[in-house]
Design a protein around this nucleic acid. Structure first.
Length: 828
DNA sequence: AGACCAATCAGATCG
DNA sequence: TGATTGGTCT
């Protein structure tokens, strides 16, 4: 997003004011377009893409599979609308989910249109456009247009205060949990009055609703909003003020939505309000682009249903499918398509490619003994590719859960292999950045109480709890901001001399900085503030390992301020934007979660950890049942379709989860890959070739991976494994009998699945186990006792030294002391 | 104010 | 197992 705050009067006709200058080039282009010769920007589009670009009128749903040129269509469509003179830039509403996507789109449109179009003011994320609308009409939501935007941290602090004010135990009822509930309600577009009874009762014996209400009240008095409000307030404003909504209807002639499958209910309501113009005689020009198969954010409120329902919502909608894939080989596409065909709730698309090369490698499935070997083998493969001249930048490892990353990082560090972790804590969420921003906020907007509270004693200046409470009391009594209250307090004798001097010093500093606000360049001011407040000093004196990095981040913060015109403009955007850029300069392997890989592509992709319980993740199955499984499968699909040429999938037989070694079984997703496009790699690594011994008791039904991944003799045939399995089944049966929320679900095999192996036909159904491994607490006391001599398939022989439920601590002769579940050892 | 210990928790994350 | 967090103690 461009840096400057948009200070143009809303309907001040920014187009009319300078149409000539801008329309010049566009008009000429439009002319060319009407004269028949296809404009250059349409060149190279395939027929479907072109249809999606040129069907500008009426509702359109573009179902764009992975790698089918979705962004290209979206940007070309906008360029087309502009070039043919159908609308001015400011009459197009284009929403994305991430700032990155918005930036990218803006840049690409600029290339297409051939000039800077700073005039696409309504291209941005749902939230940034929400802010913009809300600032215009803040008073209609009972706010001042200078409202501040809280992030999750502020939110939790605030809720905690409210919970305590209610006289509740904030241990028993954590603010974090309430914040999540409120977020969930807001995602669904629910105001305190709308939340269902059941939900309302779920928190603090029915105080949930009251707390939500109190929270909203508090936000209003603080003149603040949270992220959810950025959509909810505009929705309410639109509903209660038809004239306001009408203005937007007149303004937005074309609406475009990216990643439509990720929209939640609130976003959907917001869009519908804007798109459905009863006064308009022609159809709504809304174009939603998405891929139902890549909907992986159900857990954060996304409703796949929005995309599945599109044709009903917008009668007469055209649905255009983009299925021609420009990214991956036929093997990769074949594997991905076959896998995703196992999902039921989908609109259905099949990717294809013309670029079929018989030399393309198949998708490789590898087995490893444990996660350590997995990491070692992947590292070797990467080094081999590197030796053949491949760039590390073209390789990525995509994991299901972030704890998997560590093993790879360790390995890469020892190998001296460059890697970069994508994702992780966002830049602006770091403590030092948030502190620095709080200083800037208090200077820019003195009434920002949350900012004041954050910095009042950072660095330590002897203003502890007692002093802060005193300031609070005064502020509440006089109805002023905390800063004002502090100012008043230092003029009196109410405080003890020491804190009073400290507070006076702080207040005077803030006033001094405020005085500099107009006269000093904002980057310079920021440096002055951080220096004079002692904040940088604090980190310089800090001996911890992170301190240098934090100082570096602060420098980075100031550097990033340069792009903005003013401090105010910077703060406006910082609340919404600010992800640290990754430098492409260094050649490095990317390491990230599957979720953050969406939208990216790499020549070579490694997908480790394809084991039941990890992927599909147990919690997704427990909480989401069938829907949860389907979302996991879509996640797998996203992973597969990230690869352009080489795709390696790994699973291990043993994995340490929460410090306990557990035996694992291959993911059911492996069985859902088509044989024609997959080959099981024969490793000749440290463990030598794998013994092939059939007959693994796989509770999910026979699998063609039953025989892989066995380094020694078949571990699955050992009595220990058999007993583990027996225990597991007993445990799950017990659980199903007594616990709610767990049920046995039958997933029949679809037609698409019947392709391989005679064994399959005999399988009646597949059970989603409630528990992969009996949960750590067992009802039955362990059958072992201290001193027992036992055998474990991974660690060999050892003696039991301690028992905790079904967790055993064992001194192994060779491997040392380990903790394992009792099901995996056998008395000898 | 800071150090130290026990308790808790371990799926993904955009703005 | 390990990081993080909240509490207590000095």
């Amino acid at each position: 997003m461009s840096g400057s705050p948009d200070d143009l009067p809303f309907f001040g006709d920014d187009d009319a004011a300078r149409p000539a200058a801008r329309a010049g080039g566009i008009a000429a282009r439009a002319m060319a377009a009407r004269q028949g010769a296809a404009p250059t920007y349409l060149e190279g589009l395939n027929p479907e893409q072109r249809l999606a670009v040129e069907t500008t009128e009426g509702p359109v749903l573009v179902l764009a599979g992975a790698g089918t040129g979705k962004t290209r269509v979206l940007t070309t469509r906008i360029a087309h609308i502009l070039a043919t003179g159908r609308a001015y830039p400011s009459q197009i509403l284009a929403v994305t989910f991430t700032n990155k996507a918005a930036r990218e789109m803006k840049a690409r449109i600029e290339v297409l249109v051939g000039e800077a179009i700073e005039g696409m003011p309504w291209l941005g994320t749902f939230h940034s456009i929400g802010v913009k609308i809300l600032r215009r009409h803040a008073e209609l939501a009972g706010l001042k247009s200078s409202f501040t935007i809280l992030d999750t941290d502020d939110q939790i602090r605030l809720l905690k205060q409210l919970i305590q004010a209610e006289g509740l135990d904030d241990k028993r009822w954590p603010a974090r949990q309430l914040a999540q509930m409120i977020d969930g309600w807001k995602n669904k577009g629910l105001a305190p009055g709308d939340i269902p009874e059941g939900d309302a009762r779920a928190f603090a014996n029915g105080k949930g609703r009251a707390l939500y209400l109190a929270y909203q009240e508090r936000l209003k008095t603080l003149n603040a909003v949270d992220f959810g409000d950025l959509l909810l307030h505009p929705i309410r404003i639109f509903r209660e003020n038809p004239d306001v909504l009408r203005e937007y209807h007149t303004r937005f002639r074309y609406i475009l939505v990216d990643e439509y499958q990720d929209t939640n209910t609130a976003q959907y309501m917001w869009l519908r309000l804007l798109a459905q113009n009863p006064a308009r005689d022609s159809a709504v020009n809304i174009c939603c682009v998405g891929d139902d198969d890549q909907s992986i954010y159900g857990w954060r409120g996304a409703e796949v249903d929005n995309i599945l329902r599109f044709e009903k919502d917008f009668p007469g909608a055209r649905v255009i499918r983009l299925e021609r894939n420009y990214r991956s080989t036929a093997h990769i596409l074949g594997a991905a398509s076959h896998l995703i065909a196992h999902n039921e709730g989908r609109l259905g698309k099949t990717l294809f490619t013309d670029a079929v090369d018989p030399d393309d490698p198949k998708v490789k499935v590898h087995a490893a003994w444990d996660s350590e070997e997995e990491a070692r083998a992947v590292g070797e493969e990467i080094e081999a590719l590197q030796a053949r001249g491949k760039a590390l930048n073209d390789m990525a490892i995509l994991v299901r859960a972030s704890f998997q990353m560590r093993e790879f990082e360790d390995r890469f560090v020892t190998l001296g292999l460059n890697y970069r972790v994508i994702g992780g804590p966002r830049f602006y969420e770091r403590m030092e950045i948030r502190d620095a921003l709080a200083y800037l906020r208090i200077v820019a907007q003195g009434a920002d109480d949350l900012a004041f509270e954050r910095i009042v004693n950072v660095p330590k200046r002897g203003l502890g709890e007692a002093s802060v409470r005193q300031i609070h009391d005064v502020a509440r009594m006089r109805g002023t901001s905390l800063l004002q209250a502090a100012r008043d307090l230092v003029g009196t004798e109410e405080m003890k001399p020491k804190p009073r001097a400290a507070l006076r010093n702080l207040v005077e500093s803030i006033e001094r900085w405020q005085g500099l606000l107009e006269r000093t360049p904002h980057t310079e001011l920021a440096e002055i503030i951080l220096e004079e407040s002692g904040y940088t000093e604090m980190w310089k004196n800090d001996r911890s390992a992170e301190a240098p990095g934090r100082l570096e981040n602060l420098k980075e913060l100031i550097r990033s301020m340069e792009e903005y015109e003013s401090l105010r403009g910077f703060l406006e955007h910082v609340a919404l934007v600010m992800d640290a850029e990754r430098d492409e300069e260094v050649d490095a392997v990317s390491l990230m979660t599957l979720h953050s890989a969406k939208g990216l592509e790499f020549d070579t992709v490694f997908l480790p950890g394809w084991e039941e319980g990890l992927f599909p993740h147990q919690r997704a199955l427990d909480e989401g049942g069938r829907a949860g499984l389907e979302e996991e499968r879509r996640l797998a699909y996203v992973g597969l379709t990230r690869a352009k040429k080489n795709l390696h999938i790994w699973f291990t037989s043993n994995r340490r989860i929460h410090g306990l070694w557990q035996s694992t079984i291959p993911s059911r997703f492996l069985d859902e890959l088509p044989e024609a496009h997959v080959e099981v790699a024969e490793e000749s690594g440290a463990f030598g070739g794998y013994a092939r011994s059939p007959g693994r008791p796989n509770p999910y039904g026979p699998s063609r991976f039953d025989e892989a991944g066995q380094a020694f003799s078949s571990p699955y045939a050992t009595p220990g494994w058999q007993r583990a399995r027996r225990n597991r089944n007993e445990a799950t049966e017990r659980n199903w009998g007594t616990r709610s929320g767990h049920q046995v679900e039958r997933i029949g095999y679809g037609e698409a699945d019947s392709g391989y192996g005679a064994g399959r036909g005999s399988v009646k159904g597949r059970t989603i186990e409630g528990e992969l491994v009996a949960r750590s607490v067992s009802d039955t006391p362990s059958a072992f006792k201290v001193g027992d001599r036992v055998f474990h398939i991974k660690f060999g022989n050892g003696n039991v030294t301690a028992i905790d439920g079904n967790k055993l601590t064992i001194d192994f002769d060779k491997a040392g002391q380990k903790r394992v579940l009792d099901g995996f050892v056998e008395r000898v």
